[in-house]
Design a protein around this nucleic acid. Structure first.
Lengths: 243, 243
DNA sequence: GCCCGGTTCCAACAAAAGTTAAGGACGCGG
DNA sequence: CCGCGTCCTTAACTTTTGTTGGAACCGGGC
């Protein structure tokens, strides 16, 4: 894979959320990145570990999660190519959650040292990455609301639309359909419900002709109903530098 | 109120979570802060507004929350003296949630401009504040887990202990008792349950002799049971510079 | 082609949480 | 000291979600 293809999605995404100068782009293009392949369902960094690198998703899907004493797992966020899901480890190096792949994935690792040096050289880039971690936090706020006060069908629709709108930025939505490679077990973990209930909810949305989910792919049947059910606020994605 | 008293809690808290040099402390002590009084239950910044200052809590309790279309409200976090709950507005100036007081409060406002200039002058301070916003995000992750997969009694115990351990740092825990000035309605909004159910849960914990809650004050009756129920992991508070 | 493991799907029952409604305690202002 | 409003409290009932257990499906490896 050519070097710029590795960085393409990242830069595309940063452009969408921050105003960014050409010189800063060249700095990012010059960043040394070491690329590794991961298979599906593999831990990248674990809760409690001390991270020394940040991880750029080049290809594939990842998720962050926490496991509590009872053994139950909560998925905190889903991640797609161009994102750096553990940027927070730069200044909070001991992980308080797991980062793992959902699908086979290509990941690029950038060392904390490199990033810190870049920040000292270019404060504007630091602010851009800072902003990126703040958007990450904003999505957690949204996730709290989703899990805390929406009924299960709305939760599912909301996570689907959030994912879709992020996939759209990197050109991965095909008409009414897009990828969401989670098992029903994992969907339950994301929504704070059991896998059985996740199955009920998926069936219900299918029977109501709103959306169907088959083999890790979402197919929207009735967009207006879908949007209304999800109660989605586009602002929460912070996909605009002016906000 | 003398100027250093305003900054005391902030510096105390920063010391706990980051290693911090004396020169940087003097910079923070020199920060121009304009102080204002707020009564209880008042909005400080609203969802959708553009912030131009960050807000330091000098005295009193605050909460951040989001309200969805159906009118239901989710509390995202509780805040105590020494914290800057809207630090995120520095690089995400359009608020995506509300910040409001729970009790009468004294708040100090620091302009974004001032903070940005300080950051350019002292990158280490910038990194310290960045770290602060990352800890904020870490607490959101913990909140997701709480709301997503713990049963209601454990949720309540968990929020209580999280609050207590933060109050402890600023010397506000008296033996087995500490302040938690929320109505049962607000407790419900924090836990993602109804006020009626919040009442049921509070009663249950009282009847089991674990903890009682009366007029905004928590009184722990059985500490071991309380800790076990809450399933609390001290690491999530990030109260150590080495982590 | 066929077995095997993981998913998906489903039904019956149990538990947790939401809803509605109403009385009681308490603090504040007249 | 009384009246009013807010919060707390409780009960009865409904709905949502969890639990258990099992059958059908599907893809990959032998």
């Amino acid at each position: 894979m050519p070097s710029d293809a590795i960085r393409a999605a990242l830069i595309e995404r940063l452009r969408v959320s921050s105003a960014i100068a050409d010189e800063d782009i060249s700095e990012i293009e010059a960043l040394p990145i070491s690329v590794r392949q991961f298979s599906a369902e593999t831990a990248v960094v674990r809760d409690g570990e001390r991270a020394t690198d940040c991880c750029l998703i080049v290809e594939g899907f990842c998720a962050r999660s926490k496991t509590i004493a009872s053994g139950k797992r909560q998925i905190l966020s889903l991640h797609i190519p161009g994102e750096i899901p553990d940027l927070m480890s730069l200044f909070l190096p001991v992980m308080d959650h797991d980062l793992s792949t959902l699908t086979p994935a290509t990941l690029g690792f950038i060392s904390h040292d490199t990033l810190r040096k870049l920040h000292r050289r270019r404060p504007v880039v630091a602010e851009m990455f800072w902003r990126d971690t703040l958007i990450d936090a904003a999505m957690f706020r949204e996730w709290i609301v989703n899990v805390g006060l929406r009924p299960a069908p709305a939760r599912l629709a909301h996570v689907m639309i959030e994912l879709r709108e992020r996939l759209r930025v990197i050109g991965r939505v095909e008409g009414a359909s897009f990828e969401m490679p989670l098992t029903q077990e994992q969907i339950g973990e994301a929504l704070g419900i059991t896998a059985v209930h996740a199955n009920r909810v998926i069936r219900q949305l299918r029977e109501e002709g709103i959306v169907e989910l088959h083999r890790g792919r979402v197919n929207v049947l009735d967009e207006p109903k879908f949007l209304q059910l999800a109660d989605f606020d586009r602002r929460s994605l912070h996909q605009s530098p002016t906000l």
